[in-house]
């Protein structure tokens, strides 16, 4: 699925709790251009329950949300235009 998506940056936020995971995600997005793609790895539980909604409220698009084998989540974000 979506194998053509080019990921412009990755941020591993294993073990980073709320709200600093959102802060680091915003910093990573600030370094990208409009429409570029960021992948972040978030812990299960509050992180994956909160961060995607916060990103949507800021106008970014969640392209994919997929649970990894260790229970964490890979989130593919398209930066707002």
């Amino acid at each position: 699925m979506n194998s053509e998506v080019i990921i412009n940056a990755r941020k591993d936020l294993h073990g980073v709790s709320c709200p600093m995971n959102m802060v680091y995600t915003k910093v990573a997005l600030a370094e990208l251009g409009p429409g570029q793609i960021l992948e972040v790895i978030l812990d299960d539980g509050p992180p994956i329950n909160n961060v995607p909604g916060s990103l949507k409220r800021e106008g970014h698009e969640i392209l994919r949300q997929q649970q990894c084998e260790d229970g964490s989540w890979a989130l593919l974000i398209r930066k707002s235009d």
Partner: peptide
């Protein structure tokens, strides 16, 4: 930074 209208 978390505020949409302030941010990074």
């Amino acid at each position: 930074i978390l505020l949409k209208d302030v941010g990074v």
